[in-house]
Computed example of a mutant assay.
Amino acid sequence: MMEGLTNHLRLPEREPDNESQARLDYHAVEAISSDGRAPSLPSFEFSTTGLPRAEQFAIWHNSFAPMLELSDIEPMTANFKGRQRLWDLGSLVLAEISTDRLAFSSLPGHVRRDPVDHWTMTVLLSGQIRTGTARTAFTAGPGEVQVHSLGRSFDGVVDKSEMLVLFVPRDLSLETSATLGSAEFSTLGTGMGRLFSDYLVDVANRLPMLAQADLPGLAAATRAMILACVQPSADHIEAAEGPIANVLLEKARQLVHSRLLDPKLGSELVRRELGISRTRLYNLFEPFGGVMHYIQHRRLLSAYAALTDPNDRRLIFQIAEERGFSDGAEFGRAFKRAFGYSPSEVRNRGGGGIPVRPDLEHCPSQERLGVLLRRLQG
């Protein structure tokens, strides 16, 4: 079924002239490794860029014709820009879509030769979508998730937007079917809904690194996340513990990176931003020696970069203070524990890039594993 849906989203076969065909940027992208490793997942791309305005919307319309009727709201504009990239995930399909403003509506079943009746879970990256049905109307903005049912009647407007769309078949599982059926035509405005949004963005970012063998595990994790985030329960959340933890940890890392020099950055700020308990925060960062150890390690890495930057000639204590170290001696000890050199030695010898641990070569062989593992810490 998913293979069929991927084919539906491709352009219909026709006989364009050679010039138009050359401008049609639609191709399958598949990375084949020359060293014998499994190939990465193929993706299928197409864009309206380079086509005459008269053809741009028509081709965009045709690409969605099996499931939606699209209307050009602003036909007098110089261009209509649309781009999509599709991944066939076996039991799921993920689409990355960028589109100019347009209207959309579902198709009556009798006009479709091969009806598409799946759920779509749409994560807005930018822009806004407004949807109406006979019973309700709802809106989604960046970071929010909308659930549509392609087999039901609806219409709406999408502004100039970027989005991820997950196509979920009705026969994925009985439990998933019941869960999405209860949430269709709604915006998941809860914290768990936002967690699913982060999960789907993370999946899209990682797809270029996955292979076909990874798809069963990805499908299982996604199913667990749908159940946990759309219809939370203790059992659903427990089943999705691994994917949820990964999403939370990634959010925490991004938060630490963005506020690394903020003197208020600490475990309580991270906990509040993630919306989790102190116990949950402790469990997330236990492998890193705790959240404060993780923050300190990232600040030390930042200090190392500053000390090896030939354009940064500030005094060492100024660099240390900027990263929350009020005691120069404490900073020096922590820095040498992390990198094997004092801050002044690093400044004097110059260098750059990733900190090097030359002591690994000279330490006793039985201690090397411990050195390596500590280097990975944080």
Rank of each mutant, 00 (worst) to 15 (best):
D202H: 11
N205M: 12
N205A: 14
L207I: 11
L207A: 08
P208I: 11
P208Q: 13
M209T: 08
L210R: 13
A211H: 02
A211E: 04
Q212E: 06
Q212I: 06
Q212A: 12
Q212M: 08
D214N: 11
L215H: 06
G217F: 07
L218C: 10
L218P: 01
A220V: 02
A221W: 03
T222C: 02
T222G: 09
A224V: 09
I226S: 10
I226T: 13
I226V: 15
L227Y: 10
C229G: 08
C229E: 04
V230F: 04
A234F: 01
I237Y: 09
E238L: 05
A239E: 06
A240I: 01
A240V: 03
P243V: 02
A245S: 15
A245H: 12
A245F: 03
N246T: 13
N246Y: 05
V247A: 01
L249D: 10
L249M: 14
E250A: 13
E250P: 04
E250W: 09
E250N: 14
E250F: 08
K251S: 10
R253W: 10
R253K: 15
Q254T: 15
Q254M: 07
Q254C: 09
L255E: 04
L255A: 12
V256A: 10
V256N: 07
S258W: 00
S258I: 03
S258G: 06
P263Q: 06
S267Y: 05
S267T: 15
S267V: 15
E268R: 15
E268L: 07
E268T: 09
L269W: 15
L269I: 15
L269Y: 13
L269R: 14
V270W: 00
R272E: 13
R272K: 15
R272Q: 13
E273T: 08
E273I: 11
L274Y: 02
G275V: 06
R278K: 15
T279H: 14
T279V: 13
R280P: 05
L281E: 04
Y282H: 11
N283Q: 14
N283H: 12
E286P: 01
P287W: 05
P287T: 09
F288E: 11
F288H: 11
M292R: 10
H293S: 10
Y294G: 12
Y294S: 07
Q296W: 02
H297Q: 11
H297M: 15
R299E: 02
L301I: 05
L301Y: 05
L301C: 07
A303T: 05
A303S: 11
A305L: 02
L307E: 00
T308Q: 06
T308V: 14
D309I: 14
D312C: 07
D312F: 12
R313E: 05
R314V: 07
R314F: 09
R314N: 07
L315Q: 11
L315G: 06
L315W: 05
Q318S: 15
I319N: 08
E321P: 00
E322I: 02
E322S: 11
R323Q: 09
R323Y: 08
S326H: 12
S326Y: 02
S326F: 06
D327K: 03
G328L: 00
A329W: 06
E330N: 08
F331S: 01
G332H: 06
G332A: 05
F335C: 02
F335V: 08
R337L: 05
A338N: 05
A338P: 01
F339C: 03
G340V: 15
G340I: 11
G340K: 13
Y341A: 02
Y341E: 01
Y341F: 12
Y341K: 08
S342F: 00
S342W: 07
S342P: 04
